[in-house]
Design a protein around this nucleic acid. Structure first.
Lengths: 139, 139
DNA sequence: TTGTTTTAGTCAGATGCTCTGATTAAAGTA
DNA sequence: TACTTTAATCAGAGCATCTGACTAAAACAA
């Protein structure tokens, strides 16, 4: 079986379940918004960086940040080091979603480990981290 | 690092590169169309089955099959066993894309094996196949 | 300093993919 | 036969994404 599909299936499982958990906890956010939100750093991140990290155009990132801003999950503040730029920052309200997402992620990992064993989980993670070195465009 | 993201990055790499190779070979097809096309079986597949396999609604599958039909990559024939249904079949023209996709897949796997080693590739595949047992909704 | 080029972001417009809800026709069932 | 389920389509809508054009600030070159 095609390794692309083998990778895709569990990755979608993770995405779907984490989003479902966050939505169930009362956060109204879409998959696309979440992908952008996930990439916002501690001290704020520029739109251009978000676009690169999420693999979308600046326009798309801007569109999604507009929506996130409208519902109060991010805010835009001026970048003190560059008059053209603004920093996107996660609000306290949105930060409350983090533990929800982490808990679901831990649950998924536990289920997987239960099924394939601790050893194989370790091998899986090791192989994926190394693959990231050659497939991740953001590092 | 989040294992969902670790899985997603190489899976996207595979999808992007295979699509790019197929498009470069002169086939005009989109990612969404390709995902449906990939699921059409040897002797034809019903729209409903395609929708399930590709994780989309029947309407979406129908929309994509319409486009694929328009450019001549699939055809719809009556299902002899059920008057309501029709079978979607891949045309000879579209079948020519298969070796192109396979060649690119082989190239990717070779690159990965070069980077992480044969042993880890084997472990990766084994772990993913086992994970498929609990995460793949179509088996 | 002034002029040119690059960079950060936005505006406008279009397309593509996906969904929900309603409908038609055939098949299966009581 | 009458009812229910299934396969597919029609109609309408929303979201995500893109390309191209633009503005303003910053960086750089002469």
């Amino acid at each position: 079986m095609n390794i692309g599909l083998l990778l895709f299936i569990p990755s979608r499982e993770v995405e779907n379940r984490i989003l479902a958990a966050v939505v169930a906890a009362g956060f109204e956010v879409t998959q696309a918004q979440a992908r952008v939100l996930m990439r916002v750093g501690r001290d704020g991140t520029r739109l251009t960086e978000l676009a690169e990290a999420a693999q979308v155009t600046k326009q798309t990132a801007g569109f999604l940040v507009d929506q996130l801003e409208k519902v109060g999950y991010v805010e835009r503040v001026p970048d003190p080091t560059d008059g053209r730029a603004r920093l996107v920052r996660v609000t306290d309200r949105a930060k409350e979603a983090v533990p929800v997402a982490n808990a679901e992620m831990a649950r998924i990992e536990a289920e997987w480990e239960q099924h394939i064993g601790k050893r194989r989980m370790g091998q899986l993670r090791e192989a994926l981290e190394m693959l990231g070195e050659i497939t991740d465009p953001y590092r």
